[in-house]
Structures are given as structure tokens and as C-alpha cells.
């Protein structure tokens, strides 16, 4: 039992790395994507909307296969991990851009006007006035999405990333103790999500304490 546990624990660092990498890629890419969604240029809007809609209507596993077997096989050689980060990162970007969009509409329009009137440059407006408020409002939804991403990362095991799900599968196939192995894996995923929930609650309290009501 302990041997099984230590075997499947080997996958945990990969799961964490994959989740964090995809989230960072997606959270970063989500910003320009969101900007495109709200742009006045019709072409940009159409392109970004199609990207967002297709990312959210097609299961992540299809994206992963597409990146790894489709692009990875023929055009560019990439490791399973890279393919998974690209695939999950794109899906995350689409979802995060929607979260940002929602958060932007929640910011009072007066804030944008005030920033403009204070003669700040566009990037200053964004960096100093909008971005802090955006982060505070988007934080809870972002954290919820991150927990979902942690669970979705299991899909990377199908293209060979040696994460927690991958190790669980192989240990169960070798030892035929599938019941305990998968139960342990489920528990590990739940335990991994707890720090995210706690951190997000802490960060939320911290950010809100500095805001006047």
C-alpha cells in the first residue's frame, strides 16, 4: 500500500507543474484575447470570439490530441508536457478572457473616465487603475477555474505526461489494486485543491481590506 502510494506520488510534481504552467500561460494570453473581444475593430472581435467559442465548445482532450498528434507529429516535435501546456493553456486563455470580460463590466464606468481625465497614458490607466481592480474582482472566479484546471490536467495522462493520473493508471494495471490506487488518487487531487481554495480566500480578504466601501 505504501509502495503504491509512493509510486503514484511521483506524478504529483508533474500535475502541479502542468497546472501552474497552463494557468500562467492562459492567464497571460487571456488579457490580449479579452482586449480583442472588446475592441472596436470588427475583424479582431470576430477572430477572438471564434477562438473563445471554439475553445469552450470542444473538449480539452480533443485540443490535446490536436496539438500533440496533429501539430506535434507532423510540423513541430514537442514533448507531451509541452503539448499539454499549449493545449490546456489555450483553453485556459479562452476561459480567463471571459472571466476578465465579466470583471471589466463589473468595474464602475466612472473609474475608466476618472483615469482618462487624470491625463494618465493608456498603459498607465490600465496598469495603475484598471488592473488592480480587475485582479480583485476576477480573483474568486479565477481561483475556481484554477481548481477546475487542476482536475482537467488529468487528461494530459492520455498523451503520456507522467502526472498523477498517469501513475495511478500504471500502478493499478501492474498491481491490480485499482480500488485503493484510484481512491488514493482522488483524495490526492482533493488535497491539492485545498491550498488553492485557502490561498484564494486569504488573498481575497487581503485585497478587499484595502478597498474602501
Amino acid at each position: 500500500m505504501i509502495m503504491d502510494l509512493s509510486a503514484i506520488l511521483k506524478g504529483v510534481p508533474w500535475t502541479i507543474a502542468l497546472t501552474l504552467a497552463s494557468f500562467i500561460v492562459g492567464a497571460a494570453l487571456g488579457l490580449p484575447l479579452c482586449a480583442m473581444r472588446l475592441s472596436t475593430n470588427g475583424v479582431l472581435r470576430l477572430t477572438s470570439t471564434s477562438i473563445v467559442v471554439s475553445c469552450r465548445s470542444i473538449p480539452p482532450i480533443v485540443w490535446l490530441f490536436f496539438v500533440f498528434f496533429g501539430i506535434g507529429n507532423g510540423l513541430i516535435a514537442m514533448s507531451p508536457f509541452t503539448a499539454a501546456v499549449v493545449g490546456l493553456g489555450v483553453v485556459t486563455a479562452a476561459n480567463m478572457s471571459e472571466i476578465y470580460r465579466g470583471a471589466l463590466t463589473a468595474i464602475h464606468p466612472g473609474q475608466f473616465e476618472a483615469a482618462k481625465v487624470l491625463n494618465l497614458t493608456k498603459s498607465q490607466q490600465f496598469r495603475d487603475v484598471i488592473l488592480p481592480q480587475l485582479t480583485r474582482i476576477a480573483l474568486p472566479s479565477g481561483a475556481t477555474y484554477l481548481i477546475g484546471l487542476l482536475k482537467d490536467s488529468a487528461v494530459a495522462s492520455t498523451i503520456g505526461v507522467s502526472d498523477l493520473a498517469y501513475q495511478s493508471y500504471h500502478v493499478s494495471q501492474q498491481t491490480f489494486r485499482g480500488l485503493s490506487v484510484y481512491a488514493a488518487a482522488a483524495l490526492l487531487y482533493i488535497l491539492l485543491s485545498l491550498p488553492i481554495a485557502w490561498l484564494s480566500r486569504w488573498a481575497d480578504v487581503q485585497l478587499r481590506s484595502r478597498v474602501s466601501r
Binding site: 485499482g178 480500488l179 484510484y182 488518487a185 482522488a186 482533493i190
Partner: peptide, 21 residues
Amino acid sequence: EIGRGAPVLILLQFVYFGLPT
């Protein structure tokens, strides 16, 4: 909590590979 906290992939494999044991 378990139904929501565990990845769907794990739930599927638990039922298909785990229960037979």
C-alpha cells in the same frame, strides 16, 4: 465533495479499473 473534487478521469477509471478488483 468527492464527486466534485475528484477529476472525472479518475472517477471513470475508478469504476472501470478499480471496482473489478
